[in-house]
Design a protein around this nucleic acid. Structure first.
Length: 886
RNA sequence: GGGCGCUUAGCUCAGCUGGAAGAGCGCCGCCCUUACAAGGCGGAGGUCGGGGGUUCGAGACCCUCAGCGCCCACCA
């Protein structure tokens, strides 16, 4: 023991404890799986946070779950590995550094690509350690010797190997397609990087006159400015209204271009006017119509969504200014038919929230089908299971409707695409290593593709690149597939589904056996934490004030798969109180161990000396049950269930009842004291170990002070001792508790001061109860504040006595000098009322013929027991009432 | 337009296979009882969103309505 128990302060102070242990653990190598070398592998890779970010509440929550999972597995003897790392977060990080540059009045284009990337690496160097330092503060038990970064050498090489392999397999290709373009970030985005939002817009109806001057066709559009890029108008081939129009030529207003009317079945005759303006460069549908009907594409926007020279006199106008100008011009030419209100969804960039522009451009794509099908199958046949299962449906739906993934980004921070173009022969060379000459014409005049890959491309490889792939390392063999993954539902598409695809394709097996989905951390009112609400809480700040353990406890106590977690400061305060209670229970135990350690007493173990008492049998029985159920809760990631059960057991049963009851045998000395010490030690030790995955710091500290085996607490995960379960003891103690509570209630209701000792006699429900009560008479006297207590076989109602019915027993309390008759009568009337209501309810049930015949015997039997119990209670109480009233 | 989820005590939520309504926080009394006032003891508070149905029995299962939330969607 490092500190004598007598020096334990009354109030637990987390600060010195939490700042001490992390280093000890790390120095001992206890976060390395090698600490359990012979054990079965159990690996979780971290969902890599942004390298330049800082720890927010969502991380704190997720990490609490991962850490609880990994610490428990470690205690169970697994070679448990929590593999940490960070993500380069392409667009996000680039944006941050660009803002830094802007403060200096600089633009990335001014300093050039090389200098800019250098700048980002510098930034990463300065900021990169922050989040990992914060994780240490929170107690996350990562193996930092294996820490990775998505852009470190190994991961970068892996990305190239994957890209080349997919390219050679025909699963990566380059094509001119309509992609989602962010005019602020100046890059393409994948479909899921676009967030749709309903907005009130307009449906503008424009007349396009025929070239021959004979009439016009009216088209409807939500984006009037794109008419500048129209190269045709499409109608449904069966639409009689336009039967004569197909093949005729229209004059595009404001531009003057001659454009044809074409027929295409993609047109919905019901919508708008049934005639669609076709803008192949700025709308995916139109692009496809154009592809089928041979219409050309005219790009009218710059990369910033400003009208370019193809827009004629509108050139130089930003897209919304152009929209107004186009409408105004059409109006003045009398071609603006009318404008309807129209609510529709428009896409925004998920990084900067700018409205996304569909844009025709040359990009790299990953073919989806061949990768998606095996990924769906692996979940369908349970090689990977989602917890809770209902997220699987979402996963399947997404994979089924997956379109090819645009993976090229026009930014500078990221994995540069390993493709080179030969200036001489135009050949495309895709290669893991930088080529020095063209593989076709041998020319040395090569230029590398300017684009980088989507950040999620490297994330998709995380479960195996972090283990050393493409090298066939020992870690890869040992820890792939990962045991499981903890992550949020918001990145099932971005990340989970893609890891499944890549893992299956490149490793031939799923990346993890289970995916436990957690919810969002919300505030006390259930609102999402966000800057705009101003309800964002800093986890480090809370941990600083209440302890990392308290924050972890508060989060874990509410965590159940798939569900959001509300968090208010009061909850954390409550968790802090819990930790303090734990501290003090240990302090009590420590003060009563005669300088011995938990380990010594546990080793002394069974058989316990002397005769094992009811409270001892009971608490050991309860411990066994609770251990089993906590273990099961953790195993199923039902942390809330496990933690709440443990909390209730520790506080309500162990502290409130057993510790109080133990004070007597501890005072008796001899075998009684020895026995109580061993029981206390066993329970305290088990509680510490069960709690350790959730509140590692305080439990380690207490183990250090009381444990005494010179080892860290991580040694053993407790197993439930099924043989300790003792239902007889459970029932007997339940009765004792009920009887003591009844007497306490009586005292409290009649304001009998604690200093005033009263007497009580109990007529037990049966002989077993009777002997339990007799055995515990001293305890009961202490707990209920009695100076006299006795168990008697029977007693007729007498004047100046009160009767309480509890657990089938009758408690007799002399009233003389304690409570006046009127108050006692009122008390009895309340009890009579309660039991009469119970009897009425039960008898109504038993009078129901179909209940008695159809319900299972044990249910009917239980009902009969309740009936006789209520009847007896009423008989007793009424007789007593007559006595008092008479 | 599809899909998912939620509606239980003042607040946030548990209630797994249908058999006497729970926790934490808050609230109201009484207590510094030598582990803990960050505590102890006692208490109040719910016709489980509405309406149907299945069942001997429904907070739990089915249908339906209402309200809220989230995700997906290239009808211009």
């Amino acid at each position: 023991m490092s500190t004598p128990a007598s020096e334990m302060p009354k109030a637990y102070d987390p600060e010195p404890v939490e700042s001490r242990w992390y280093g000890v653990w790390e120095d001992a190598g206890s976060f390395r799986p090698e600490a359990n070398d012979g054990g079965e592998a159990f690996c979780i890779v971290i969902p890599p946070p942004n390298v330049t970010g800082s720890l927010h509440m969502g991380h704190a929550f997720e990490h609490s779950l991962i850490d609880a999972t990994i610490r428990r597995k470690r205690m169970q003897g697994y070679a448990a590995l929590w593999l940490p790392g960070t993500d380069h977060a392409g667009i996000a990080t680039q944006n941050v550094v660009e803002r830094e540059l802007a403060k200096e009045g600089l633009d990335r284009h001014e300093i050039g690509r090389e200098a800019f990337v250098e700048r980002v690496w510098e930034w990463k160097g300065e900021q990169g350690g922050r989040i990992t330092a914060q994780m240490r503060k929170m107690g996350s038990s990562c193996d930092w010797s294996r820490e990775r970064f998505t852009m470190d050498d190994g991961c970068s090489r892996a990305v190239r190997v994957v890209f080349v392999r997919l390219y050679e397999e025909g699963l990566i290709y380059r094509a001119n397609r309509i992609i989602n373009w962010c005019p602020r970030c100046h890059t393409a985005l994948s479909d899921i990087e676009v967030e749709h939002e309903d907005v009130d817009g307009e449906l503008v109806h424009i007349r396009y006159p025929f070239a021959d001057g004979d009439g016009s066709v009216t088209v409807a559009t939500t984006r009037a400015e794109t008419m500048l890029g129209d190269t045709g108008v499409a109608v449904h081939p069966d639409d009689e209204r336009y039967a004569g129009a197909i093949g005729r030529t229209l004059i595009l207003p404001l531009v003057g271009r001659e454009i044809p009317v074409v027929a295409d079945t993609a047109v919905d005759p019901e919508f708008g006017t049934g005639a669609v303006k076709v803008t192949p460069a700025h709308d995916p549908n139109d692009f496809e119509i154009a592809a089928r009907t041979g219409l050309p594409a005219v790009d009218i926007f710059t990369e910033s969504a400003v009208v370019n020279d193809n827009g004629g006199r509108f050139a130089g106008l930003a897209r919304y200014a152009a929209r107004d100008a186009v409408k105004e011009a059409l109006r003045s030419e009398g071609l603006l038919d009318h404008v309807d209100e129209h609510r529709h969804a428009i896409g925004h960039c998920y990084r900067c929230h700018t409205v996304v522009e569909p844009r025709l451009s040359l990009q790299w794509f990953v073919k989806s089908k061949p990768l998606a099908e095996p990924a769906a199958a692996a979940v369908a046949d349970d090689r990977t299971q989602f917890v809770p299962e209902n997220w699987e449906k979402l996963y399947f739906d997404w994979l089924e409707n997956l379109r090819d993934w645009c993976v090229s980004r026009q930014i500078w921070w990221g994995h540069r695409i390993p493709a080179w173009y030969c200036r001489d022969c135009g050949r495309v060379i895709v290669s893991v290593d930088d080529p020095s000459s063209c593989s076709g014409c041998m020319s040395a005049d090569l230029t590398q593709d300017e684009d980088v890959l989507d950040t999620w491309f490297s994330s998709a490889l995380w479960p195996f690149t972090t283990l050393g792939w493409p090298e066939q390392t020992d870690d890869l063999g040992r820890y792939y597939p990962n045991a499981m993954l903890h992550t949020g539902f918001d990145i099932i598409y971005f990340w989970v589904a893609r890891m499944m695809q890549m893992g299956l394709h490149f490793q031939g097996d799923v990346p993890f056996r289970e995916v436990a989905i957690h919810g969002l951390v919300r505030d006390a009112e259930g609102r999402k934490m966000s800057k705009s609400y101003g309800n964002v809480v800093d986890p480090l700040e809370l941990a600083g004030r209440y302890g990392a353990d308290a924050l972890r406890f508060a989060l874990t106590r509410a965590a159940s798969p798939g569900h959001d977690v509300p968090l208010a400061e009061e909850w954390v305060e409550g968790a802090r109180n819990f930790v303090n209670k734990l501290w003090n229970s240990a302090r009590f135990v420590a003060l009563n161990l005669d300088g011995r350690t938990l380990a010594e007493l546990e080793a002394a173990g069974a058989p316990l000396p002397g005769e094992v008492t009811l409270p001892e049998r009971w608490i050991l029985s309860r411990l066994a049950q609770v251990t089993a159920s906590v273990d099961e809760g953790f195993e199923r990631y039902e942390f809330a269930q496990g933690v709440q059960k443990l909390q209730a057991f520790f506080w309500d049963e162990f502290c409130d009842w057993y510790l109080e009851l133990a004070k007597l045998p501890l005072g008796e000395g001899g075998a009684s004291r020895e026995r109580a010490q061993r029981v206390l030690a066993g329970i305290q030790s088990t509680i510490l170990r069960l709690l350790h995955p959730v509140v590692p710091f305080v439990t380690e500290e207490l183990w250090d002070r009381l444990g005494g085996d010179g080892r860290l607490i991580t040694a053993r995960w407790p197993e439930a001792d099924a043989s300790a379960v003792d239902e007889t003891a459970d029932a007997a103690m339940a009765a004792v508790i009920e009887i003591v509570s009844a007497i306490r209630r009586f005292r409290s209701e009649h304001k009998v001061p604690p200093s005033k000792k009263i007497a009580a006699l109990v007529v037990p429900a049966d002989t077993a109860q009777g002997s339990a009560l007799s055995d515990l008479d001293t305890h009961i006297r202490a707990l209920a504040g009695l100076d006299q207590f006795g168990v008697i076989a029977g007693r007729d109602p007498q004047p100046k006595e009160q009767r309480l019915v509890a657990a089938g027993a009758t408690i007799v309390i002399p009233l003389e000098g304690v409570v006046d008759i009127a108050a006692a009568l009122a008390d009895i009337d309340r009890q009579i009322e309660k039991h009469a209501a119970e009897l009425a309810k039960v008898e109504a049930k038993l009078a129901d013929e179909s209940f008695v015949t159809k319900a299972p015997d044990h249910v009917v039997g239980a009902m009969r027991t309740r009936q006789s119990g209520a009847q007896e209670a009423l008989t007793t109480l009424r007789a007593q009432r007559d006595q008092l009233a008479g």
